[in-house]
Design a protein around this nucleic acid. Structure first.
Lengths: 215, 215, 215, 215
DNA sequence: ACCGACGGGACCTCCCGTTGTT
DNA sequence: AACAACGGGAGGTCCCGTCGGT
């Protein structure tokens, strides 16, 4: 039955994404994947031609989980500015309420793929590019909607938001301490707000852990 | 003979630092290290008991190169504020004028060591901590010297500066494009300047490549 | 498929037992085992996690061959005394008609495992203990059956029989000359007979080679 | 200075004999020997061309220690029969009061050298042969001196004594329990005495540990 | 006489992928 | 679709022996 096969395949990808996320591509062995999926060699290689192919699909899946959260979060927004804040929240959730263990898949892929895994590197570039574009175009839309001042450079803003949050993902994971991410979120949020046309109330920060961390 | 040994050892660490920086710990094989150093297995294992031990020393060496640049840069400063700018410049140089290939060793170690290389993770934590402390205490000194306003939260500033620049290292390396780092530097510099007591001239930015990248 | 695996596994154990018996644990390399079994590394390691594990199973197998001979020989006996003689014959056959090359596996294991292979040493102890117990309890049964005089100390007898025959295994193998074993067998047999209640005919010695070695 | 060199050489042999005795030839690595002697590669290879050569000399040394004990023990005897008892005592001392750790060097060499170390095997044969001859000729002399009955077969006696005691060395070492050796000594002693012409008092057993084990 | 850097190979282990089988 | 035996090679480690240097 075709459905069954697809389910198994999806389950493999899901399990593999967790393992690759926490151990990295080279740090993950086939036997890690076998015990994570509960399958044997044959079962796995029926669906994927190689470890690399599985890794690529696992990467795509991990990215899609984040993308899904954007879509979800965007549904609840009614301004471009809120969308920017929502984007920040989604990244922040990589630490506070991760969909998958291992932090940000793009960061992981970018760091590990250096000169060694060009295929993965390309995927990471693509994923990062669409992320940067999302921020950039949202910022531009916010300007056009009159929510942000015209002096905002969308590309500059996208870079700063992304770099700061990715760096914070690394810091918080390195120390096992979410407060680095929280400080980064505060900074990025304030930075965005500094371009807002209306003095505006504090953005609708939703810290997913529920703990309203005193700052 | 003792001299010879130390030289060889130092050379191995230097060469290994490059390889580990570009390929990562798991992505680097002993073969890679042998061809990088020109030694044979026996020769290498006389100096280092294991690949991990060599990796740790290579990490320390890579960090020491950055530290050395701080020391060098600090010698030319005469205000706490200039020191902050110098720190930013040193990190920025990881892209524009790297001492070693592979970007920031701490970033690399932090991302790859997750749950897999606890010893390396500890070293990365230590290195990162002293970096954060350096920024934090410099910021505090700048406040005490009246160069920055009292409202500055040193820890917050250290987090933001570090996260943003580390994230930018990742972005610029991912794309092979230094402009991400440049934008991050501009932002961080402006952010610091926004706390300055004197309206002050632009900070003495020294882009090491000399190319004034149009932005 | 399952059947195939078990067959292969059994074959590996059998072949390995020969190699370990003749070359010893440390003297046997994985290469030796590979050429003995005709497998490749991957094939072998699918069945056994390590050389040590294989060695242990090979040891157990070698011991089981000897045990099997006891069972076989016991089936043809109808007195406790005959059982004692049968035991002697089984050990004697390690030289005259070996099931496996390499002499006595327990002797080999005991000598080589000293302080270096504690796991093997334990196995050797267990195997030796059940051997000593077999002799001891058979002697006791012979006393109770009135076939041996009550003054017999079963533990003493077991030690003497075992020590003498094991020592003879070593001597005969060292010189490649079975006559040492034959002399030991004669002595041990006479020693046992000296405790017999009936003057009894000579025990039903079956020298497995068929050659009635002139002594 | 020549003396110095010989001293060092002798010390190496002594230390190596202990290591080889406990770990065996293959179980002993050069680095084991280096740490046992406190020397470095160069220091060791100045005296011995190879591990094998050192092992051979260490074996000879170990045998010479036993030989020395014979000589010593013989000096205190005034009958051939006492010499036989003395020989038994010397072997018994391998367990109760060993000159070197590792039990009997000949036993060890015989078991480990099988088909793998022909040179060592030859040495073991030679050493064993002179031991057997010593017992045999002493027995013969005892017969000629009228201390043992003429029916004694010297070669048979030598085999039985040697096999039993060697087997007991193995047993006592396997269990870490000297009582196996004690029982073997009792047996062998009684066996010899059974050939004595004079009903004679118990032989002058000297258990070297001093504990007169109750039997 | 001794040290210690180094070569180069063998060690055991585990890798990833293929293949036959159920 | 899944299992599991197996190939063949690369992994890191440690081996023994050599040799330049003190």
């Amino acid at each position: 039955m075709v459905t069954r096969a697809l389910e198994t395949r999806a389950r493999i990808v899901r399990d593999a994404a967790s393992v690759f996320g926490t151990r990295g591509f080279f740090g993950t062995s086939m036997s890690d994947l076998l015990s994570a999926t509960g399958l044997q060699k044959g079962g796995l290689y029926n669906h994927f031609g190689s470890k690399e192919q599985l890794a690529l699909e696992a990467f795509d899946y991990a990215v899609s989980l984040i993308t899904g959260r954007y879509v979800e979060a965007f549904a609840a927004t009614d301004s471009q500015l809120d969308r920017l804040y929502a984007i920040v929240d989604v990244i922040s959730a990589l630490i506070d309420d991760p969909a998958l263990p291992g932090g940000c898949p793009i960061l992981n892929a970018a760091v590990e793929s250096d000169d060694v895994l060009p295929v993965l590197r390309e995927r990471a570039q693509e994923a990062m590019t669409s992320w940067l574009r999302l921020i950039g175009s949202t910022a531009k839309a916010a300007v056009e909607a009159g929510e942000l001042r015209a002096e905002v450079d969308p590309r500059q803003l996208a870079t700063v938001v992304t770099a700061t949050l990715e760096g914070a993902v690394m810091l918080s994971k390195l120390y096992g301490d979410p407060s680095y991410m929280h400080r980064a979120v505060d900074h990025v949020t304030a930075h965005i707000r500094s371009f807002a046309t209306a003095p505006a109330a504090a953005p609708p920060r939703v810290r997913r852990t529920g703990k309203k961390a005193a700052r």
